[in-house]
Design a protein around this nucleic acid. Structure first.
Lengths: 143, 143
DNA sequence: TCTAACGTTGACGTTAACGTTAATATGTAG
DNA sequence: CTACATATTAACGTTAACGTCAACGTTAGA
């Protein structure tokens, strides 16, 4: 399994090395394995993970804390399915899943709200553009 | 023309008084008229203006500096409109309108890009939720 | 007219999200 | 094995976006 040094990750993600370590520090990224000397060895999954974080940060304008809530629910099912399987008590499993369901509902509602407001803004701009284009049509030399 | 005190504006917008003064300080809002004693007297336009700022901040996740740029281009548009009316030469009018059309195109593309990425994220979350709900179904006591 | 409620301007405090620097250890090309 | 680029932690610095407090002036109602 090939690994990446922090500088490789920085180049691929566009983040600085400081930011990458910071995201690990605040729990936004799983801590990678270390070499004998203590050097971080990242995998491709770390890079994919960071890509999602960057998207949520830039596109949605989420705070890192909000991103954390989103990632926690994503991790608990996909990445750490093993940990989930170690929960023996089915009742506990069920509780965990229901908790995730509620969290996801909230996140999805947030997204819908955002989309709705952006669409409203888009409608305003589109209407203005239509008026502008009407003006252009009226002024353009017709043949 | 009826005016509003800062506390009224705060209540209507949900911003704090400190934030309102701060937005004026950094040029995010036109400075309102003052009473003889120096008390700020806001108009409805100030409130409408703040609403847009809040939307851009919360919905689009823009930094205050980005909002400033956005507002400037919005102002340019209205400025272009006023300018447009004063133009006598139809050829010049046509040029102005085409300029506005280009500006609007750029803004609309930005919004589309955001919507696209939000929809991608929404798809991810929805799929995750489906898997979670599948797990719940499997664990739930069946009768 | 008096006074309580509200407004004003500094000015310093706070938190998130990193940047920067220093002192030191590690990885690697020759 | 040496040298040099790159890594590590620790700690203090910085910027945006406000919060909070003090000291003081203004407004509005009884």
């Amino acid at each position: 399994m090939s690994t990446y040094k922090i500088d490789d990750v920085a180049r691929e993600t566009g983040l600085t090395k400081r930011t990458i370590r910071y995201y690990e520090e605040i729990g936004l990224m799983p801590a990678p394995e270390r070499s004998d000397g203590g050097t971080r060895r990242y995998t491709r999954e770390h890079i994919d993970h960071l890509r999602r974080v960057i998207d949520a940060r830039d596109v949605l304008g989420f705070s890192l804390q909000e991103i954390q809530e989103y990632l926690i629910s994503a991790q608990e099912l996909t990445g750490q399915r093993e940990l989930y399987r170690q929960i023996q008590d089915p009742a506990e499993q069920l509780g965990k899943l229901r908790e995730m369901d509620v969290t996801l509902d909230a996140q999805l509602r947030k997204l819908d709200e955002k989309i709705g407001k952006i669409l409203a803004l888009k409608k305003d701009l589109t209407e203005l553009q239509e008026r502008v284009r009407g003006g252009i049509d009226r002024l353009e030399p017709k043949d």
